[in-house]
Design a protein around this nucleic acid. Structure first.
Lengths: 225, 225
DNA sequence: CTGGCCCATATTGTCGACAATATAGGCCCA
DNA sequence: TGGGCCTATATTGTCGACAATATGGGCCAG
């Protein structure tokens, strides 16, 4: 369960939203479990006011569902939800890649290439380091999303969608993605960006995401049933 | 400014969120204006507790921005924002059309065709009825979105994106979309759905949205500058 | 006269308490 | 013994008040 440490972002409500979302993503607060306001308020040492505001935020992030006069429950991830989330992700990140083709600065593209070089080095060194524990993967996708320079898109993917995606990853042990294959696909995407080939970049990104979706779904079906 | 009527959805907070979002979309609460909690609480005859929760919801919808210890302001729509919003809309509704190709039931497709028949009749009757005051247009898009049977996509487009889109439409007098052209494009999209041609449906939907984006941007540039 | 500091004021953030609704358990009756 | 009602309890929703922070205006120095 969640501890009671703080982050102090000048407002308790924002801190609580951050802590609770992380706890849900990591699975410290179990799927389907009820968020009891008195219990959480006591544990975090705050009143119910800011806690309720944080829960409203969680609902907006799609991490909990609420019923009036009943309360909030953590969402329960189903195989269908994975498909739904990844369809959205495919559409939005594909668009991000397209936009990045026009909007990305040369510096951003250089950073992307440097990042992949680093990943390649790490991969060669650690043999099979799971591609930097997935964090490198997130970093790559995040940079392309930011390179779209579309603030709404950045916030939509960052605040809402990736919360659920991280939740899948964190809570489903591991998924059999080949780091070398992922790196190859990342390379191809960056090449398309560098050459400013919008159609190609979007298509490659969509295929890349679609592939990782299939891998995740295969794993879910054979593990959960 | 906003009145003080109610909708009674069993919780004040939800009612307030609904009322405030509508007021912002219609422009009753001006762009860039500050949402004063004491003033709104007094006007609606409620305490600041549920009001603050409603404001958090509005922030999640992207209708207001908040600064800690300062307050919430209604977003200000810029020409760049239109482009950003429509890029997201194009990606998501394109995906919705694609998904609807597999997921839509025959009944849903029949309803869509009936809807377009009705639109055609109204158009022929009223000569130039602006395609049912845009509501018919929203209805068409909404049905396709729902036909995707992707709950997350439905909620994302319905709760967040369409709030901003309606805000553009409502607050920019009129935009010179040709109702007959729109109807033709709608027909083509539905034909693709009926024939279950996913690639074509997505492409047509994206072009349809992209076109309406360009029309709106032209209008904004020559009216606002 | 202008710029910066300081204080009064208003607004936001947080809290504890009350009201209203849902939930669980026992009790009554068939 | 089983099912339904009803009450006791706990939880959610709402309120008013207090604390902390930002805002605006006046005052003083240069």
């Amino acid at each position: 369960m969640a501890a009671a440490r703080e982050l102090t972002s000048s407002t308790i409500s924002a801190d609580l939203a951050e802590q609770l979302s992380q706890a849900i993503i990591k699975g410290d607060i179990a799927q389907g479990s009820k968020l009891s306001e008195p219990e959480l308020a006591r544990r975090f040492g705050v009143s119910r006011g800011p806690l309720r505001e944080a829960i409203v935020r969680l609902e907006g992030m799609g991490l909990v569902t609420r019923q009036p006069n009943v309360g909030a429950r953590v969402i329960r991830l189903t195989v269908e939800d994975v498909a739904a989330t990844f369809a959205i992700r495919e559409a939005l990140e594909g668009m991000a890649a397209r936009l990045a083709c026009s909007a990305a600065t040369d510096a951003e593209l250089a950073d992307l290439q440097a990042l992949l070089d680093q990943h390649e080095a790490e991969l060669a060194a650690s043999g099979d380091g799971h591609y930097a524990d997935q964090e490198g993967n997130y970093d790559f996708h995040n940079r392309i999303i930011r390179a779209s320079h579309n603030e709404q898109l950045i916030s939509l993917l960052g605040d809402e969608l990736y919360a659920r995606i991280r939740m899948y990853r964190q809570q489903t042990a591991d998924h059999r993605t080949d780091p070398r294959q992922a790196l190859r696909e990342h390379r191809m995407i960056v090449d398309a960006l560098v050459n400013r080939e919008a159609d190609l970049a979007e298509m490659l990104m969509r295929r890349h995401i679609s592939r990782s979706q299939r891998l995740l779904e295969v794993y879910l079906r054979e593990s959960v049933g």
